[in-house]
Design a protein around this nucleic acid. Structure first.
Lengths: 138, 138
DNA sequence: ATTATTAATGCAACAATATTGCAATTATAT
DNA sequence: ATATAATTGCAATATTGTTGCATTAATAAT
């Protein structure tokens, strides 16, 4: 269980004001340790206006608290950035796992991403989406 | 330049009727050798109704002619599947490159995808999104 | 602790994106 | 050439995301 003061510090470290909505959303992501879409949040936090949730996701993304996770469904999900990310130096290499059974999306350790070399290209960022079965569903 | 009869064969091989819209869309993808979004098609093919283009993309995807390319913008783009793909056996490993400069999205050779091993997980499909600069933009 | 300043929230309206039903049309098989 | 079955275009609808603005709340300054 993450402490209130820790959540607060994360917001402050990213130059974000501390508000109820931001605290609740951030806590929800961290305590579940998985990625969520806007729709997930809308269902979970009916007490907040849709627009506020959109803006929360946007400000978190712009300020390096969250990163967007690519998907081929048109539905973007968001994950908490590793602690080394900031608005200035954002770690752009991510590895994500999506379970075909329960649908859960997780962020996996970045150091597992193999180095990619492409002749004639300049590689700046690598994002891997791995689909399959998670330990709980096997 | 791809021949009319070849395009026709691709459609027939995937159990799709040959229509003007499908021929035009497929030719557009193949001759440009890159990925396009719905929006791209809508701009290119004003002669066809938006709904028809949506349905064309969906039928191509469902029948293994196209595959969807993940993105973190919420805009899905589509790429032509390799010739070995069919509705029955679809090759699910893809490597895509998106140029941060010109925006072009390309499908890269599948054999360049490194094998991923995740303890406790069952990996079924790997999709890599690589961002950077393409040869033309460097 | 109180006040001034600045930012976030909620609401309404709007914009963009995607889907469905159905009649008319077109493609394929016979 | 005709029958059958699928695709198209249009209209309506649903879903998803954004903007402007008055009110409210959070931080900084006193």
């Amino acid at each position: 269980m993450i402490k209130y003061s820790e959540l607060k510090n994360i917001l402050k470290q990213h130059n974000l004001r501390v508000t109820d909505c931001r605290m609740d959303v951030l806590e929800y992501f961290i305590k579940n340790n998985q990625a969520f879409s806007f729709k997930n949040l809308e269902d979970e936090f009916e007490k907040y206006d849709r627009v506020t949730l959109y803006r929360t996701l946007n400000s978190f993304t712009e300020n390096g608290v969250f990163h967007k996770i690519p998907s081929d469904t048109g539905v973007v999900t968001y994950g908490v950035c590793s602690t080394t990310c900031s608005p200035q130096s954002h770690n752009h290499n991510h590895m994500h796992f999506q379970c075909n059974c329960c649908g859960k999306i997780e962020c996996l350790a970045e150091d597992q991403i193999p180095e990619i070399k492409l002749p004639h290209y300049e590689v700046m960022e690598v994002d891997m989406i791995i689909k399959g079965m998670c330990p709980q569903c096997i």
